[in-house]
Computed example of a mutant assay.
Amino acid sequence: MELPPSSVSRYVSTLEKSLGQKLLYRHTRAVKLTEVGANYFEEIREALMAIDLATEHAKGTETAPHGTLKINAPVSFGNKHLSALINQFQQHYQQVNVELVLTDSYIDPVQEGADIVIRIGDFSDSSLNYRKISDEQFVTCASPSYLRESPKISSPDDLLKQNCLVYKGNLGKRTWHFRQSAAQPFESIEVAGNLYSNNADILVNAALLGQGIILFPKWLIAEHLATGELVPVLTEWQCAEKASPQTIYALYPANRLKSPKVSCFLEFMSDYFGSPTPYWGSA
């Protein structure tokens, strides 16, 4: 907020004095909320957002969005697909500033004060509204050089003899899943290889260098499939990272939709990505 620390300290001290409660623990290396401070913050957050929204409406900005739009998204998806989207959005709506935070951790938009949170996976939180972007589409693939030197791959079981480059995050090593049609359940395959990482881009780059086989969503590797740098295998099989359907979606608290900048971005995003098939789906 471009305020000197002394001014912030004075404002907080004045607020604490008026409430008769300590809101912050102050240490030499850190400052954090007390229990009272955390509860107070949660209770006033929605009130402050309601004031901001009322101010937008009072200024008659329904057709001219302005202010700061706070967006949270997964790291790889944000790097691949949000820069150009936000650039075009801001060219169209020049009074909107965007604050983009990329993280693979789950973010509650209400708790974190985000206007829109883009997430990938199962949608289960009924307390939030959401806009579907796309179903996840996965591809098992490798570089032409790797495939020329490896045994033929005609079924998922053949992957057990291959060098598979596997994502390994906080929940452990990813299991790969396959089925021949949507009428069948997915069956898991415990693949293995000489490289594991919690960073998808590292594994994709290794596959491009001919190190092994990867299974990733099409939005992550569409450009490499289009150029032929990566070649799909097991094309008669459906593959996935989980046995349940996965979706790319945008979460937002119900009251945010009343904000012109949020509603305009959601519509702009849907048009930009393409519905029901996003632009990366044609690769």
Rank of each mutant, 00 (worst) to 15 (best):
L24Q: 12
L160F: 11
V36P: 02
N72Q: 06
D271Q: 08
A254H: 14
Y40T: 06
L69H: 07
S127L: 08
F89C: 05
S275E: 10
P151E: 15
A54H: 06
F123N: 13
G172Y: 11
Y11D: 13
R45K: 12
S259K: 10
E56W: 01
F89H: 05
S143R: 09
V12T: 11
K242G: 07
I86L: 15
I116R: 00
Q111G: 01
E149R: 15
Y93W: 12
K80F: 08
E229C: 03
A254E: 15
M269L: 14
V233C: 13
D201K: 11
G228W: 15
I86W: 07
C264S: 10
P156Q: 09
L3H: 11
A73S: 15
N198S: 13
E149F: 10
H177V: 00
L102C: 14
P4W: 08
S155G: 09
V204A: 08
R119I: 00
L3V: 09
I116T: 01
T55C: 01
I202Q: 15
A114N: 02
Q180R: 12
K161E: 12
S188Y: 03
T63G: 03
C141R: 07
L23E: 10
N163G: 05
V12N: 08
H66S: 12
I120P: 01
E223I: 02
A182T: 08
L19N: 14
L251H: 14
I189N: 04
R179T: 07
M269C: 05
Q238P: 06
S124M: 00
E42Y: 10
H177G: 00
E236S: 15
L195N: 04
L208D: 10
A207S: 11
R131K: 06
G20Q: 05
V139I: 11
Y167W: 14
R26S: 15
I120F: 12
Y196V: 01
T14S: 14
N163W: 07
T227L: 09
K59Q: 14
S13H: 10
M1W: 03
Q180T: 06
F123V: 04
A222M: 06
L160H: 05
D201S: 15
T175A: 13
Y196P: 00
Y40E: 06
N198Q: 11
A207W: 02
P217F: 01
T28C: 02
S127C: 03
L220H: 06
A283T: 02
K168A: 08
G281D: 04
L209K: 10
A50S: 07
